[in-house]
């Protein structure tokens, strides 16, 4: 029985390689068919925001990599309702099919996984 892993991604896509590096852990684990979840928390929720123009900051678009998650078998995707609200983002317009969790839901989520990595 494989140990399950929750990856918590807390960095905005424009704040350095952190968002991409968290995503890479998820994609690598998906390729090995491991039971994983990915939680967008704090500034990490900006990765899901619509209408981004990373080229204007000469950054590579993270969207294509994010969209690959289901193809890599990573379908357990979560976002914090509080983090969305604090940043004025609506859960209706996000770039991925994510489950929106309140604080109680978050605590239950952390309980469900064997291991957690936060980046």
């Amino acid at each position: 029985m494989s140990q399950s892993l929750l990856i918590v991604t807390r960095q905005a896509p424009w704040s350095g390689p952190g968002a991409r590096e968290a995503l890479d852990i998820a994609l690598a684990g998906g390729a090995f068919d491991l039971p994983l979840g990915l939680l967008f928390l704090d500034d990490g929720v900006f990765q899901l925001a619509p209408g981004q123009q990373p080229a204007s900051l000469t950054l590579k678009d993270l969207q294509a990599n994010l969209q690959a998650l289901p193809m890599f078998g990573v379908e357990a995707l979560y976002v914090s309702a509080r983090s969305l609200n604090e940043r004025g983002l609506s859960d209706g317009a996000l770039q991925l099919p994510v489950e929106v969790l309140d604080d109680v839901g978050l605590s239950a989520l952390f309980e469900r996984y064997d291991q957690v990595i936060t980046l």
Binding site: Q3, L5, I25, A28, L34, Q115
Partner: peptide, 15 residues
């Protein structure tokens, strides 16, 4: 590669 992190996670009791 990152696969080594996942493998370590599977081999260990605690990460």
């Amino acid at each position: 590669g990152l696969g080594q992190l996942h493998e370590a996670n599977q081999l260990a009791d605690r990460l």
